[in-house]
Design a protein around this nucleic acid. Structure first.
Lengths: 336, 336
DNA sequence: TTGAAAGCGCTAACAA
DNA sequence: TTGTTAGCGCTTTCAA
């Protein structure tokens, strides 16, 4: 039926040029006479020729592949990040190899990426062992941890200023006149959680206040709901809770309003972190801290592309600023 | 510093075997003596050898790459789909090349996929020109349209029974005693919208009822909000609205409750389609039609893998059943 | 079971 | 500007 796979040699034959001329015709900066090129292009179109990207990658050493490893997609933060990365990388001529990480499988997946000769790796909310990070660095593959950092690895990182974000929330809640301020933690191993929590406590301490209670929600919806139930199970209840991310905050609000019959923010204020799209939905109107995703992406892209360009991996750590968005889920400070 | 890229020849030298022996040691079914293999594996580990997947793909003709094209990620339906596909594909030994489609760029992206010698293509809520579909078929690359179909192309498709879903909603709303039933359409070019709408009208007609009004929301959040404003701008307002997907339904509910001050479902019933995770959130409790994503994925995988296996592309169209989930956003029929 | 040899489709010197 | 010539790192006959 069809001739099965057309190669550059076929095109060369038809255009009556050498095979390398065909290669040049498809290489942006190469020196080919305009007429030669158009003759070749025409033949190529006629035959339905498509350069084999794999062969090109092999010989040129440039696969134009970037791997992305993502832990989960149910928190809307990540789909948004994936979409933006994909679009921008595509625009830059790169292609995305996507991996979903199963806990414990991350190193194996990174090996896979390297087998495919990716030119860079983006790890979104996933970390890697330092031995693997070493290996990437030695191979010359830049790795950037997105929204996580690990001090002891050679991998670069891009994070928000979670420390500052946490203190912003503390400030806001204290100024709002709250007296029993609780915290629902995310994944305790995650740097995001550690920093948000540390910043929060520090901010509280600056006002001479100690956190009223603390439970762990593990960044998951169901587990956060459970955490909220625990938090509100006592006789006297918190009047404000800072939840380590928006995704959990929705679950927490559901429990507070539907199961406990309390009002938000009249009875209890809720503040999240991330500012995912749903936070602006009227059903929640979540007051939260904005992670400036576009800025984070930009920082990641520039680290990655710069290192790919210069063939030199060196650790960099970008920290992007944050700001609070005040909506309706937490009492708003009246004074000043 | 490090020896830069280790090849099978290096391993062969160290293990004192031929280079082809190394290849065999890394090929599952190949005939190698156990001792030879272990000798090779040891040398490989020592040197940090990783088979080059690109070279393997070139010679074997099996890239183990599957391309996925997605139009957008803001509707939670898609992140979920992407995650599930990725995990299952990974489990089957395949790797995912992810593309976000810009409208109009789809054909170009499919060309890219083919250049990377992908073994199959999944198009999620995106369609392709029939010429490109032809090309894929001729090249022997199976394509499956996920959640869309195009009768005139050779591409396979997997969809929900949108027709039936629409009629289910009509039935539910009529039995609920509604009298002014409106429809907010999604993307009018999409088969999903056409079928949901057709099924809905047919279901209405079966009860001798005609739709009260119809506006277009284009499957987008903001546009749907606008559509809702239009729909409710008249003197007399609808008492029920079927929104072509959940994502728009949230926007519609926001407008109805917050801007218009109407109650859901007391003043107006809202029904969506998809059953994304947020539909179960207490802030919305959206009554909707469930797309059985796991079943849809399974159907897609089996079409794809079967055709890759047998090297034969033939068009198949799977239709997956749907069912309604009754939550709180629409009045519940009392009788029977 | 093993090794030698022949490429997969392409890019990249090197001459011409 | 063009063609010739080597390979990139691997799998796969084909003999041994």
């Amino acid at each position: 039926m069809s001739k099965k796979v057309v190669t550059s040699a076929d095109v060369a034959r038809m255009a009556e040029v050498s095979q390398s001329a065909v290669s040049r015709a498809f290489t942006p900066g190469a020196s080919v006479a305009p007429e030669t090129r158009s003759k070749i292009i025409e033949a190529a179109n006629q035959l339905g020729y498509r350069p084999n990207a794999l062969a090109r990658a092999m010989i040129s050493g440039r696969s134009k592949l970037i791997a992305m490893l993502v832990a989960y997609m149910d928190n809307q933060f990540y789909p948004y990040v994936v979409e933006l990365f994909s679009r921008q990388l595509q625009e830059q001529g790169y292609n995305v190899l996507l991996f979903m990480s199963d806990p414990g499988q991350q190193d194996r997946l990174v090996q896979k990426m390297m087998q495919y000769q990716v030119e860079g790796i983006i790890m979104a909310s996933a970390t890697l062992s330092s031995s693997i990070a070493r290996e990437c660095a030695d191979t010359g593959i830049p790795v950037v941890l997105f929204n996580r950092y690990v001090p002891s690895t050679p991998a670069s990182s891009v994070t928000s200023d979670n420390l500052h974000g946490g203190s912003l929330v503390a400030d806001f809640l204290v100024r709002g006149g709250h007296e029993r301020i609780a915290f629902i933690a995310g994944d305790e191993d995650a740097s995001t959680n550690r920093d948000r929590e540390a910043g929060f406590y520090k901010g509280l301490a600056a006002h001479g206040i100690t956190p009223w209670d603390r439970v762990v929600g593990g960044y998951g919806f169901e587990r956060a709901a459970q955490a909220a139930r625990t938090l509100f199970s006592g006789e006297v209840k918190p009047d404000a809770v800072f939840v380590a991310n928006d995704h959990m905050a929705f679950a927490v609000m559901d429990v507070i309003r539907e199961e406990l019959g309390l009002r938000v923010p009249e009875d209890v204020s809720v503040v999240g972190f991330d500012d995912v799209p749903e936070a602006a939905w009227k059903g929640y109107q979540l007051t939260t801290v904005t992670q400036r995703i576009p800025d984070m992406i930009e920082a990641t892209m520039s680290i990655l592309l710069e290192q790919i360009e210069h063939q030199a991996v060196k650790k960099r750590a970008a920290v992007v600023g944050v700001n609070m968005v005040v909506r309706g889920s937490a009492r708003i400070p009246s004074s000043q």
